[in-house]
Structure formats: structure tokens, C-alpha cells
Nucleic acid binder design. Structure first.
Lengths: 126, 126
DNA sequence: CACGTATATACACTTTGCGGTATATAAGGA
DNA sequence: TCCTTATATACCGCAAAGTGTATATACGTG
């Protein structure tokens, strides 16, 4: 459970983050709004806190949890190149990145005749 | 494993998506570039395909996998409100959303005296 | 038609994460 | 000091997901 991606894979955690988007909340408030048991909420909040998604401040017996942007920004950053992918000029990007991710082993086209991968040689049809 | 979030929680799957960002790839190419076993690659591709992240076309004995944008766009959409959160005017947004996510129970501030708690009198206690 | 390549699938195993119940800790008020 | 509220933690059981090995299937070639 290291990465931010694994954290937000959990639906209840995403729900908690959605709630905190409105404003900071206490554990009890989250518990009631999401209809979860209190230990479940606390556990998820612990995970979220340790991953940097939220921070808590003490208010008497209560803990108020609020959002922190960094981990979500990290996810946003990972998403960025894909955004450029679906934003139109697909083929151009394709060739561009293909030059930045060089082929790895000398068998990218090994079925019958390895034809020096330089441009798509003969696209074997079915 | 329904949601797109759970799909991209897996590091190897994110790596595969990153590769496909460059261009379409065969299973063997992915296998070699990511140093995974072939069954592992096939399994992840199956998951990605069933979730709509990739599609495959047949090229003789090989399958060429390419990206599909929709699921990643869905994630991007979920991220949108948070983007607005970390983009500056935090307090304004806070109050704004607080009006759209009405508090649920009459105890947002129950520190000393439960002010006519008719919804939750005295729960818990073993 | 037999063989090698490419990919998919089945099976067993291991790990991990989540939920629930019970309990511990802390703070406030009578 | 005792009681109640608020939150955290420990323990347990279960289900799901990832991995590896072995095998099945499909295609192309000599």
C-alpha cells in the first residue's frame, strides 16, 4: 500500500476524500454520512493520513480531518501524458514517444524474417 | 475489480499503460521491456482489456495492444473537483461546497451537551 | 504434418486488504 | 471520581488479487 494509486482504489476512501472536499470533517461526521462503522472510518483515515491525503487537528475529543493536495497532484501528474494522448494528435505523439522509448531487444518482429526495425516493413495480414 | 481506480492500482499495469503510450505493442514486447513473465503480461492485459483501457488487434500469432482513452478520462474526471481544490481559492470553494453537501445529522458540534439528539441518543456501549 | 513461436488459460499458493467485534485511550462534564 | 462521548487499535476471518509453473490453442513455416 505504498502508492497513491492503491490508496484511492478503495471506494470508501474516495468517498471520504469527496466529503473532505466540502470541508473538514470529524470522524463521527464521516461515519454518519457514509454509513460506515467508526473503526472502519478510523482505519481508512489512518491510511489516508499516512499516505499524505489528509491531515488531522485535535478539537477536544474529536479529530478534524482535512484534505492535503500533494498525493492527488501526483496522480494528476501521472495522468498528464495520457491526457495529451487523447487530446487529438495521436499519431504525432505516437511517433514522438516511440523515439523516446527505444525498442529493447532484437526481436520486435521475429516471426519469420527480422527486417531491421526502422519502419513498419510488411504488416503480415491474416 | 470493477472500477478504473482498482485497475491502475497495480504498478505493472501502469507500466504497461505507459508503454502503450508510446505506441501499440505485442505481448512479447511488453514482456521483454518490463521483465515480466508472459502469463503475467497476458493476465494484466486481460484485466486492462475488460476494463476498457486497451484493445487488441490480431497480427498473425501476435496480438497488438493499443490504448483506449475512456477509463483514464473517467479518472481524470473524478480528479477534476480536487484540482479546483488545490488551485488557490480554497476557502471560497470550501464554503461553496459546504452548502452543496448539507450536513447530515444535528451534531456537528456536540462537545458538551447533546442538543436534543433525537437521531442518535446514546449508541455504542457494548 | 511436424515443429517452433506467440499468446491465453488453468491451477495452486501466498499475501494482503477490508470488514466486524471488542477493547483501549483520552477528554469533558456532573 | 465516575460516566459519557470520541477516536484509535488489536484481533480474527474471509475473500480477492498477484505470481509462477504447466499446459492448451492458434498460427506460420519447412
Amino acid at each position: 500500500m505504498e502508492s497513491a494509486f492503491e490508496i484511492i482504489a478503495e471506494p470508501n476512501r474516495r468517498a471520504i476524500l469527496g466529503l473532505l472536499l466540502a470541508s473538514h470533517q470529524s470522524v463521527g461526521e464521516i461515519e454518519r454520512r457514509l454509513c460506515m462503522t467508526q473503526p472502519a472510518v478510523s482505519k481508512h483515515l489512518r491510511v489516508l493520513r499516512e499516505a499524505g491525503f489528509v491531515e488531522s487537528t485535535v478539537d477536544a475529543q474529536r479529530r478534524l480531518y482535512r484534505l492535503r493536495p500533494e498525493p492527488l497532484q501526483e496522480i494528476d501528474a501521472w495522468l498528464a501524458p495520457f491526457r495529451r494522448f487523447w487530446s487529438g494528435h495521436i499519431d504525432a505523439l505516437e511517433h514522438h514517444l516511440d523515439r523516446h522509448f527505444p525498442r529493447v531487444s532484437p526481436s520486435p518482429k521475429p516471426p519469420t524474417r527480422p527486417t531491421r526495425t526502422k519502419a513498419a516493413p510488411a504488416r503480415r495480414k491474416k
